[in-house]
Each structure stands twice: as structure tokens, then as C-alpha cells.
Design a protein around this nucleic acid. Structure first.
Length: 430
DNA sequence: CTGGGGAAGGGGCCC
DNA sequence: TGGGCCCCTTCCCCA
């Protein structure tokens, strides 16, 4: 920079946000600087007010309202949230500090409920997507935007809530400005508890539990790690179910890799250009661009390629092979994805002739949802059936009812026996 | 619309 | 069981 050009220089530290969150999480786990304790049915979760206010609209408003009041202490507060199950609360806290929501499929609904109550919209949206739900009767955005009502909190409590419990020392202050359903307790203790749950004082033995329970046991089998009791050798490629999208991940050690597709975590950074990747092998391939390495030479010409599949595509040009032919217009393509793209176009849809019906009989398991991606063929669903993440299920290649625990509420067929078979069905049997 | 490059994500195999 | 490596499919983007 020349003298006189006193411009601002922005130096990015892409790791900063991750490190910051990681250190806050470490503080939470050790209780360091925690100024807020959330409790749920005996479980205690030390946390930080600032973090909760940042992640939760509910706490944002709660602490915002408190900010304006005088005489309210800012020491260590306790907020009793019996209307959110302990596991769901733990998962939401873990999300707040790690940007990763790790839950069992069986607990999805509790987490959704908790996220709605606490105004953590992104989590609520994700849970609703996975559950295939839409907000019933209300605008989802508005639902997540407003703090939970007293009625909602009552509805979600484990035991029926008849009265709001409050400490005898709690002053008789009006509730205006404070999230409904919570009452102050000495300025720093809000509670909303069922009558039959122990009070904080009674539950002094309850220890803080700030970590999700997923890693403790997968007794419900959703983790796919169950070992046969007969001593038979463990299957080496035990499939595991993603707790977020319910997808079955095949291959030992592949679940953490898959989970990064949800978290967006990209721990592998290119030392040359700073680009980050979710996987080490992708970074390795990327590095070839910097090193100039092209390990896949064409035997017929000087061309060299970064990827083996690039070479494969290239070789088809030499050979002239176009093995992928459109069944409608009979145009041939060297690449399957180009054929798929072609078939998605309108031209073939319009010219599409009626194809013979598939003979009756069982369909291959992998044939389920592929037609969804086909030529705009209407998908006959059973009445009331919904299809969450259709593209996901389509990728899975399994019927929802075949997927373990995933989208269990989705029961539908793709076609009726009397209906015309979609084009893609001819390719399913591969 | 097509050809080609590249990225993303999943599965198989191996250690 | 986790991770590395490789191959594959699919999708996106650009010319």
C-alpha cells in the first residue's frame, strides 16, 4: 500500500467462530462463567445467558424484559423448563454450543416441541422437515417468532399443570413483559413446573447433565450398533441411521462423515487457497489443482485428468460410445447424468408414448421412489400421505416403510397396479 | 439443448 | 469402530 492510502484491511479468521463456540462449550461443560442454569424434571444444565439469548427468541425476550427491570439480580439464574424434556433440552443446548443437533429419531418430536417453545426456529424447521410436518393451524414463522404461551407450556408439560409454582420468596410482581408461563423467583429463578415434580431444593442430588445422551447407548437400535448376543462376529459394514435425517448410512465410520453434511462443518482446509472441505479425500483431490498433478492420463491422447471419472468420460469420447439412450427420442449420450438431464426436459415429456404396463408382481425394493424424479409422472399417494424430503428418499432408493424408523408415518405407494408404469421403472432393476 | 468440468455425497475395501 | 482411499452417481455451472 502506498503512503496516503490508509485503507481498511479486513483479515478474515475463518476459524474464529468455531473456536469461540468450542471454547464456550468447554466453559459450559465445566460450569465456568455459567450464569444460568436450566432445569428440566430434575436434570440441570448450566449455561450462559448470552448464548441462550443469542440462540433462542424465548430467552432473548426473557432477558430483554429483565434488562429493563430494576432490582433484578444478574447473578446465577435458574430457569425451570419442565415443559421441555431433559433429553430435548440437552440436545437443544448442544445445538446452541456446537451448531449440531444430535438426537435420536424417537426424540425428534420432543426436540421440535422444545425448539418451538424456546423459539429456536431453525431447529424447529429442521425437525418439522424431517417429521414431514407443517405447522398446523398457524403460520410457522409466526409460531417460532412468538414466545410460548401459557397454554402451550401447560399442554406440553409431562404432568398436568394446574398452578404455577413459585417460591414463597418470590415477590408478587406482574408478569407483563416477561414470557408467559414463567414467574420470577427472587429475581433470578423462574419456574414452571408440574405439581408432582420435585422442586429444585428437593432435587439437590440431581447432577448437571449437559451432554446429549446419544453417545451413551443406542439401546433403541437406531444407531445400528447392536451386537448379536450369540457371539457371532459383528458385521463389518454395520449400517447406522442418521439421527437427523434418518438415512441409513452404510459402512463403518461413515456416519461422522455424513453428519458433517448436516452441520456444515468443514474441518479440512486447503493450505494454499483456504478453501474448506468436509472430507479429507476431497481436499486431497482439490490439492491436485495446486500441484498440477493429473494422475489419470488418457492412453490415446495427451490429455490427463484430475479424476478417474473424468478419464472415464473422456474415454467414451474416444470410443464414441454413447451407452445412455433416451427411450423416448432415442438420442444417445455418453454420460448418464446428461441423459437424465435430457429426460427431464419438456421435449421428451411431450413426446412420451404410453408404455406397456408392468406385469403384476412384487417390485424390487430399490424401485420405490425413483419415478418421482421421472418425467413429471403424477405420484399417486394414499390419502393423507405426505412425503418429507422426497429427494432424500429417492436417493435412498428404499421405500419409507422399509427405512428403519425413518419417516415411519409415511405410508404410501408410488403407483397403483392399474396405472401406467413410469419410465424410470425400467431402470430400477439395475 | 448439449458437452464438459467440478463439487458433493455415498458405498466398498482396507488398515 | 473410525478413518483413508478410491470409485461411483448426481447435481450444478459454464461455454
Amino acid at each position: 500500500m502506498s503512503p496516503g492510502e490508509d485503507g481498511l484491511i479486513g483479515i478474515p479468521f475463518p476459524e474464529h467462530s468455531n473456536e469461540l463456540l468450542s471454547r464456550l462449550n468447554a466453559q459450559r461443560r465445566t460450569g465456568l462463567l455459567c450464569d444460568l442454569t436450566l432445569t428440566s424434571r430434575g436434570a440441570r444444565y448450566p449455561t450462559h445467558r448470552s448464548v441462550m439469548a443469542a440462540v433462542s427468541l424465548y430467552f432473548s425476550r426473557l432477558f430483554g424484559a429483565e434488562e429493563g427491570e430494576e432490582g433484578e439480580g444478574h447473578g446465577c439464574s435458574v430457569c425451570q423448563l419442565d415443559c421441555v424434556s431433559p433429553d430435548a433440552l440437552a440436545a437443544l443446548l448442544e445445538f446452541a454450543y456446537t451448531a449440531t443437533l444430535t438426537i435420536r429419531s424417537s426424540g425428534m418430536r420432543d426436540v421440535l416441541k422444545g425448539a418451538q417453545l424456546l423459539g429456536i426456529q431453525c431447529v424447529a424447521d429442521a425437525c418439522r422437515d424431517i417429521l414431514g410436518e407443517t405447522e398446523t393451524g398457524e403460520d410457522p414463522a409466526e409460531e417460532a417468532e412468538r414466545p410460548p404461551s401459557r397454554r402451550e407450556q401447560d399442554r406440553c408439560a409431562v404432568a398436568p399443570v394446574r398452578t404455577l409454582w413459585r417460591s414463597p420468596s418470590a415477590p408478587d410482581t406482574p408478569e407483563s413483559g416477561r414470557p408467559s408461563g414463567l414467574l420470577p423467583n427472587g429475581g433470578s429463578h423462574w419456574t414452571h413446573r408440574p405439581e408432582d415434580t420435585p422442586s429444585e431444593e428437593e432435587e439437590s442430588g440431581a447432577q448437571g447433565r449437559a451432554t446429549p445422551q446419544l453417545d451413551q447407548s443406542q439401546g433403541d437400535g437406531s444407531g445400528g450398533g447392536a451386537m448379536a448376543a450369540n457371539g457371532r462376529k459383528r458385521k463389518s459394514q454395520m449400517p447406522q441411521q442418521c439421527p437427523v435425517c434418518q438415512k441409513i448410512i452404510h459402512g463403518a465410520g461413515k456416519l461422522p462423515r455424513h453428519m458433517r453434511t448436516h452441520t456444515g462443518e468443514k474441518p479440512f482446509q486447503c493450505s494454499a487457497c483456504g478453501v474448506r472441505f468436509t472430507r479429507n479425500d476431497k481436499l486431497k483431490i482439490h490439492m491436485r489443482k495446486h500441484t498440477g498433478e493429473r494422475p489419470y492420463p488418457c492412453p490415446s491422447c495427451p490429455a490427463r485428468f484430475l479424476h478417474s471419472y473424468d478419464l472415464k468420460n473422456h474415454l467414451s469420447l474416444h470410443s464414441g460410445d454413447r451407452p445412455f439412450e433416451c427411450p423416448l427420442c432415442h438420442k444417445a449420450f455418453a454420460r448418464e447424468d446428461h441423459l437424465q438431464r435430457h429426460r427431464k426436459g419438456h421435449s421428451c415429456l411431450e413426446l412420451r408414448p404410453r408404455r406397456p404396463r408392468r406385469p403384476p408382481g412384487p417390485r424390487p425394493p430399490g424401485a420405490f421412489l425413483q419415478i418421482l424424479e421421472g418425467h413429471g409422472v403424477p405420484v399417486p399417494l394414499l390419502p393423507g400421505a405426505r412425503l418429507p424430503f422426497p429427494e432424500l428418499l429417492w436417493r435412498m432408493g428404499t421405500a419409507p416403510e422399509e427405512a428403519e424408523g425413518g419417516s415411519a408415518s409415511v405410508t404410501h405407494r408410488v403407483w397403483e397396479e392399474d396405472e401406467e408404469e413410469p419410465d424410470a421403472a425400467g431402470e430400477e432393476d439395475e
